[in-house]
Design a protein around this nucleic acid. Structure first.
Length: 422
DNA sequence: TCTGGGGTCCTAGGACCC
DNA sequence: TCTGGGGTCCTAGGACCC
């Protein structure tokens, strides 16, 4: 039986979440900024119409935004995660197999659903809008890549009402012709430049490009796979199990430049703490860490980038151990006289906690460590993040702490911030 | 003054082994 | 002068995604 795959994608997701609690902003252009209020990561159509691009630095268009009464928000990820859960839980009622692909997207396997698929998807769309309050677009086709194509078109052509099913040869041809190569899922900037060089500009031309060996050579098997998917051949199955992370990264741009080792150490301790919490959350241990510090590449000051790793004698997920070695590495990297702007801790060599290779000399404390980490995690879950933390993380008023000047209240995750109705 | 954060997959090349 | 062949594992870097 031919597969039927639907891609449900929330429209301007972060902005739609903000709008949910601010109905007064229904017609107002809205934008949500990345951490540190750096650049735009979500825009409503009204904001796009003003010419503000994805990833555009806020400071460059601040004046334009003020002139046009744009509602600008700092990112409020706990809110978005909560709303995302509600959307995904709604979707589960409509399909036996659902792959949650990202915070705002899910693939549904609708193979075997009786009746008119497009009508069915309109019902999904209306249910999410009514029950959760988030507008979505839905693209339907027989491969994931084609459903992505359909989704994008459903989003951009108002008269489709947010749903497009590539149910006929004509619709497929028309849609592929309308899709530029850089808008194909899996074809990024580099590849689209190369394709343009071959005289290939839209998805239809790419699908029909005959020299498969050349595609393989230039774009690797990833490119071949994308091409096959556009032809309607399934290469990418729906992935419904949540895989454990193979590496965990924790990094932030600092709110203000940092010059001294003490502040850098504090920030690195915080990132190490965050990363090890995530590691324990998935019951894993790691074999190595890497620390990176760097100056601001956009600023005209003397530049410095340094990265260095450390491999543990035996696997660990103990915050204290990870901070200790992260600091040891940092001390080697640090050079006086630079204006540091970003720090990062990366954890890798991840494996399940119960497969831990014990060291001959260090295993006597392993039970103690495990118990201590469990207690700390439990308290922090119950009483709030960082209720118990290492002194290495420092206390408040840290210069490097990120800016979030325009953050909306924790409407759904903090009792004191519940939406008030008068 | 001011430019995010967190991930995955693929390939090439080196180290090492027999 | 001449210096094999095949395999595995690991890592760095590139490209891409949201």
């Amino acid at each position: 039986m031919e597969k039927v795959i639907a891609l449900v994608d929330c429209n301007s997701f972060y902005c739609s979440c903000e709008r949910l609690f601010r109905p007064d902003l229904l017609k107002t252009p809205i934008g949500v900024l990345s951490n540190n209020d750096g650049c735009f990561v979500s825009r409503t159509n009204e904001l796009k119409a003003l010419g503000v691009k994805m990833g555009e630095p806020y400071f460059k268009v601040k004046e334009l935004c003020e002139k046009n009464n744009v509602a600008v928000f700092s990112a409020n990820f706990s809110l978005y995660t909560n709303i995302s859960d509600r959307v995904m839980r709604t979707l589960i009622n409509f399909a036996p197999i659902v792959e949650v692909y990202s915070v705002d997207e899910a693939f549904l396997d609708l193979t075997g659903i009786q009746g008119n698929i497009e009508e069915y998807c309109r019902e999904i769309r209306e249910t999410i809008l009514r029950n959760v309050g988030i507008p979505v677009s839905i693209g339907i086709a027989n491969t994931k890549t084609l459903s992505k194509v359909a989704n994008k078109i459903a989003k951009n052509y108002d008269k489709l009402g947010g749903v497009l099913h590539l149910s006929s040869r004509e619709r497929i041809e028309w849609s592929l012709e309308k899709t530029k190569v850089e808008d194909i899922w899996g074809i990024g900037r580099r590849s689209s430049e190369k394709l343009n060089g071959l005289g290939v500009y839209n998805a239809k031309q790419f699908r029909d490009y005959k020299n498969e060996r050349q595609i393989q050579k230039i774009f690797t098997k990833v490119g071949r796979r994308t091409q096959d998917e556009l032809k309607g051949k399934t290469c990418l199955e729906l992935n419904t199990v949540v895989e454990k992370k193979k590496e965990i990264i924790s990094s932030r741009t600092f709110g203000a430049p940092v010059f001294d080792l003490k502040s850098l150490r504090e920030s690195i301790a915080n990132y190490a703490t965050l990363a090890s919490e995530k590691l324990r959350l998935q019951d894993s241990v790691c074999a190595s860490i890497e620390v990176v510090v760097r100056t601001n590449p956009y600023k005209n000051v003397s530049q410095y980038y340094a990265a260095k790793g450390h491999r543990f004698n035996c696997h660990t997920n103990d915050t204290r151990t990870i901070i200790k070695y992260a600091w040891r590495v940092l001390d080697e990297l640090f050079q006086q006289g630079f204006e540091y702007k970003k720090g990062m801790v990366r954890i890798s060599g991840i494996r399940d906690g119960d497969q831990c290779q014990l060291s001959l000399f260090e295993n006597s404390n392993i039970d103690k460590s495990k118990k201590l980490m469990e207690v700390i995690d439990r308290i922090n879950r119950r009483e709030g993040p960082q209720t118990i933390k290492s002194m290495a993380c420092g206390v408040d008023n840290r210069a490097w702490k990120m800016r979030q000047d325009m953050k909306s209240p924790r409407y759904v995750t903090g009792w004191n911030n519940l939406k008030k109705c008068y």
